[in-house]
Design a protein around this nucleic acid. Structure first.
Lengths: 240, 240
DNA sequence: CCAAAAGTGTTACCCGTACACCCATGA
DNA sequence: TCATGGGTGTACGGGTAACACTTTTGG
């Protein structure tokens, strides 16, 4: 037992929707980085970095996203702080690491511009390899929470551009929730929620009847506590 | 600008239900500690401590609870990690502090045994004084989240003993949500949810008809990611 | 004009709410 | 026996799910 140090790191689970290589259906993908040193050398892990004293937690997550994908996040949210003492292999003289984990959601249009960083590779989220540290748990938790949050918040829009068709929005839900939704009922529910406003424009060039384009009525609410509190009487759906 | 160090601390928002000093109705209370050194000397703050390298985050929260109330927590959940760079007054040469905040819920029977620690005093949650650091925000967020979570989880039971009447359970909801609930409908909803099982026993000594006693059918689900993930197909209501 | 997706209408059902009412007990 | 909270019955209304149907385009 040497002089163990306590280190604070920030990791980010970056998710985007891309077609599945086999079925062609939209699925969640995420970038992982291959570890180039011990411990867990050679294994895949979530991207991250130690927190610098001059950085906010979110700033660190943003930089990690930049480094691994070349992108700036439009949606970033804190997930959880993982701090079990045995997260790094015990007795190896390694530092004890507490990781604050963030989520970032990549929009379809940005995803096209994504550039892989050093030792970065994208994986289908549900088919990711066994990961270093406790990152299997972290990833599973992130996915479970993302799916749960789809039900009561507007994060689905974080995957889409400003203008979108209701079919596109529905496909996001179907991809993340992994089940088909009734187009007729979906349309009514979304319109009834007033979250979405028709732009008057229509999407042309489709194989069939041109669908109407919509825009978000209000921006996606931030999950940042400071903003949630400042918003006065918080709605349940805005709290995690 | 001296050599700033990065420090990781764990704070705990401890809540219990006690009668309001004026109205006599049940309300949320919490213990605060008076700061005995700079910065914010003399102000009230959330109890907490720097994380020791040999402690899990939850272990640290547990010790804080022990130190301020003499109790061991039956319900403990991680809330959020606060890490803005200016949380401590800037330029004062103070360390930069990242705080992982936990919630602890005190049951009615334990609350009776609570002993105040050094410089500890309890306050009605909604009438707490202006706090040190960003603890006003932290507290507001904790209360908002507690109220939201009452709607879709079983945490209300964290305030109660093993055996309880439906009226007691309803009073917990009413106290936290700050609005009256229809006893008839409340009873049906709770019974329909199957979360609760009659013990067959009745509470005697009441002024009127003796109410039936109930017990939790399944323990309150832990919000710990490791357990949530291990539980297989997670229900939405178990996720935060 | 045909296929297929966009979009509308209709109906049955579940669930939350409101509220009238009966039951059991201590005082 | 009466006041009071415990406990039951019932009817209304909003929201969701299922699915038949009409509309609009490209080929």
């Amino acid at each position: 037992m040497g002089a163990e140090q306590l280190v604070l790191a920030v990791s980010t689970v970056v998710v985007a929707l891309r077609p599945h290589p086999e079925t062609g259906r939209l699925t969640l993908w995420l970038p992982l980085v291959r570890r180039i040193r011990e411990p867990y050398r050679g294994m895949w892990a979530l991207p991250g970095e130690p927190l610098r004293p001059e950085d906010d937690l979110a700033t660190s997550a943003r930089r990690t996203l930049e480094r691994t994908t070349g992108l700036a996040p439009h949606y970033l949210e804190q997930l959880y702080a993982f701090g079990a003492v045995d997260r790094s292999p015990a007795g190896s003289g390694e530092d004890r690491v507490v990781s604050v984990v963030y989520w970032a959601i990549i929009r379809a249009d940005e995803d096209a511009r994504a550039i892989d960083g050093e030792n970065v590779e994208w994986f289908v989220a549900d088919e990711a390899p066994h990961l270093a540290f406790d990152h299997d748990t972290v990833l599973a938790y992130a996915l479970a929470r993302l799916r749960a949050k789809m039900g009561y918040s507007a994060i689905a829009h974080a995957f889409l551009t400003d203008e979108f068709t209701l079919a596109e929005l529905r496909q996001v839900y179907e991809a993340v929730l992994q089940r088909p939704l009734d187009p007729a009922n979906f349309r009514r529910q979304v319109l009834a929620s007033k979250r979405v406003v028709p732009t008057g424009r229509h999407l042309s060039g489709t194989a069939h009847r041109p669908p109407a384009l919509y825009r978000l009525a209000v921006p996606i609410p931030s999950a940042d506590p400071a903003r949630v509190v400042a918003a006065g009487h918080p709605e349940q759906e805005e709290l995690t």
